[in-house]
Amino acid sequence: MLKVQNIKKSYSTTKAVDDVSLEINDGEILSLTGESGCGKSTLLRIIGGLEKSDSGSIFWEDQNISNWKPEKRKFGFVFQNLSLFPHLTVEKNVFFAISKENRTSKKLNELLGMTGMDGFEKRYPHELSGGQQQRVALARALAIDPRLLLLDEPFSSLDELVKEKIRKEVFDLLKELNITTIMVSHQAFDSFLIADKLVVMKEGRVLQTGNPIEIYQNPSSQYVSNFFGASVIIKGTNDQQKAHTSFGNIDLPNLPDRFSLCIRPENIIVNTKDDYDISGIVKDKLFKGPHDVLTIQSPEKDEEFSLETERCPHEIGDPIFLKVPKDKILVFE
């Protein structure tokens, strides 16, 4: 088990990591996520020993390893740019850290087999595709039987088509090998698919920790909500315990004075004027393959939001009536 306690790190005047604590249990996959510059990569580098924190400690199985050199920690590290050694073949890259007597063909076959790279032993990195380089980088990190695997934006250098496939393969492999993993990703969906636990960071601080479904459904702030996909945001005021908005009033309990309503688009149902919660006018309509994107304006024309819906018969200028289940509405001050 890895425990990170009150880590702080500043570069000149900016606080890269500001008092972060977290824990990861054996076999868990934890994803550090947030916009670029939120401090997630710095935190990962501090865990890996590549960067020294200004204060705070890191414990591995109750042993304080804060001052250990990276080579002593036995944490496998896969870098964003993969960093395969360009002067070595696949085989030598994978066996880079393995002593001569332990370089058996059984071990090599095992490592290349599980990453799907068998047959490429003699190739050089520049002869491989991005996805293949990714696999070799992973095999190389796994070769040292790491106690903890650290992945820094592992999928960002891959193009969309390969990414999906590799992400799934990596996830299955990590679970099969039961390797404790910390991954850094600025793409919310990387984290959804792979992580058991998510840590959302902003400006060096942890905003929210939890499992992906929890965070998606119950984000602690508007920022977190937005980070995991577009939401419809409507401003509102408290009007005698009713949410008063430009698009109509909704009954909601425990409202602050001023707030934003945040609704996932998939929870909004286009309905008829007999049964609706909010209404507006279609200001614009875009065809977007399987979906339509509507811009919906309030009757007073002072506010608007866009909504991705299934194909709908509405034309520009038509009134539109929407139903929103009350338990799916998030209220942020």
């Binding site: 050199k69 080579e71 036995k74 944490f75 496998g76 590290f77 960093s83 050694f85 880079f96 990190a141």
Partner: peptide, 22 residues
Amino acid sequence: SVSLVEVSRSLGQSMVKTFFKV
């Protein structure tokens, strides 16, 4: 690339070994 040195260290190689191997 600095990360080549870092990856070598994360694989358990000391600075001296990294220097000669990478």
